[in-house]
């Protein structure tokens, strides 16, 4: 099995970009563009100060990791409505639970597509069940042994942050 440390950053960037683009194109008919960030921008985008939906799915196996997708509540609601074929009024009536479930599934698909590419590169692993958080004033921090990579995507003028936290399997 190849060593995870030997995988260049460019491969992770390419893999997550392909996953985000494929999922948003297939499920929402929207194009996603990777928008590189400076370290300051990265730090700023992870410190949330407005209402956001943050969804995460993990993968366990020859690599252990988590991917968080961050989107503001308005964008999350639009994505959910689009995915479920609902109008603005209908998704509002369906409530936060419907939005959370749709974003959880969108994350599941994105992380699944990412993970499947890693599996085919020689790092087999399994997905976990999605978790959703909502809030306005919080920051997710990683443990010191994890490798963190953060990517920004622009989708229909809105911002999606994909935050990858990875570590090799414990011996």
């Amino acid at each position: 099995m190849p060593d995870i440390q030997e995988i260049p950053d460019a491969v992770f960037q390419e893999t997550i970009t392909r996953a985000v683009q494929e999922v948003f194109k297939t499920m929402l008919s929207q194009n996603a563009t990777h928008s590189p960030m400076t370290p300051e921008e990265t730090k700023a985008c992870l410190g949330l100060d407005s209402p956001h939906v943050v969804s995460t799915v993990g993968f366990i196996g020859s690599i252990n990791g988590l991917i968080y997708l961050y989107m503001d509540v308005k964008f999350a609601t639009q994505c959910a409505a689009n995915m479920l074929g609902m109008s603005d009024a209908e998704i509002t009536e369906a409530g936060e639970e419907a939005v959370n479930d749709a974003i959880g599934e969108l994350t599941n698909m994105t992380v699944g597509t990412f993970k499947n590419q890693l599996s085919d590169k020689g790092f087999p692993c399994k997905l976990t069940i999605p978790s959703i958080m909502r809030g306005s004033n919080f920051q997710i921090e990683s443990i010191s042994t994890a490798t963190r990579r953060t990517y920004r995507f622009i989708i229909a003028g809105q911002t999606l942050i994909a935050d990858l936290l990875m570590q090799p399997p414990s011996e």
């Binding site: 599941n108 698909m109 992380v111 699944g112 993970k115 599996s119 085919d120 087999p124």
Partner: peptide, 9 residues
């Protein structure tokens, strides 16, 4: 119908 699509899986 699943997100699990690795070849081995």
């Amino acid at each position: 119908l699943t997100a699990e699509g690795g070849k081995e899986h």
